[in-house]
Simulated scan of single mutants.
Amino acid sequence: MSESTDIPAFNTDELDFDDFQLEETPNEDLDFTSHTPERDLSFFKNIPVTVTLEVASKDIALGELMKAGSGSVIELDKLNGEPLDVKVNGSLMGHAEVVVVNEKYGLRLIDVVDSALTSAIQ
């Protein structure tokens, strides 16, 4: 059998912070924003993202969807003429309307949601 050795527990009463030589820092030195150099964020402008124009959506039971066939109509949650959601990597960026440019679909931004994305781009 091995003998167990008792290790004394750490006693916080024995700790004296006066033994440490700590330098006091004036509060004005804690303002990190004034000492932080401006960063060039142009690198981020070249990162590809996926822009999606979401027409509308509908929550539907799987059984109801399985009944759908050619010619079936599923009513969606947006009204005709209502602005469509523009999403960037799945996050709402703003609202737009559909346009045709050089025989391709495009989008015309109506408004941009104030978010971290818009402030990071500017």
Rank of each mutant, 00 (worst) to 15 (best):
G90N: 03
D77G: 02
P83V: 01
T12D: 12
E28N: 14
I7A: 10
D16R: 01
D31W: 00
I47G: 00
L84Q: 08
L53K: 00
E82F: 03
S42M: 08
H95K: 15
S2R: 12
L41Y: 10
I60M: 11
G106S: 01
M93T: 02
S57P: 04
A9C: 03
D59T: 12
V51H: 07
N102M: 01
I110D: 00
E97W: 05
T33P: 05
E24Q: 14
L117Y: 06
D13C: 02
F44N: 01
A56D: 12
S72E: 07
N80E: 15
T33A: 13
D111Q: 03
I74C: 05
D6C: 02
L62G: 02
H95N: 10
H35C: 11
E14I: 04
Q21N: 11
N46T: 08
D85W: 03
S70T: 13
T25H: 13
V55S: 12
Q122R: 11
S115E: 04
D85M: 05
Q21R: 11
V113E: 13
D19Y: 09
L92K: 11
G71R: 04
M66A: 05
H35M: 15
E97T: 11
V51A: 15
E24C: 07
M93D: 01
I121V: 10
G106M: 03
S115Y: 04
D77Q: 01
A68W: 03
T52Y: 01
A96Y: 07
G90T: 02
E64N: 12
G106Y: 03
P8K: 08
A9S: 06
T50D: 06
L22T: 09
S57I: 00
K58Y: 05
N27P: 15
A96K: 08
F10P: 06
L117G: 00
D18G: 08
S2W: 09
S2P: 12
V112L: 13
M93V: 04
S34R: 15
A68V: 06
D13G: 08
N27S: 15
E64W: 06
T36A: 14
G94R: 05
N46H: 10
A120K: 07
G106E: 04
P83A: 02
D6I: 14
I47F: 03
E23G: 04
F32G: 07
T25I: 15
I47L: 06
M66G: 00
G106R: 06
T36V: 13
A9E: 11
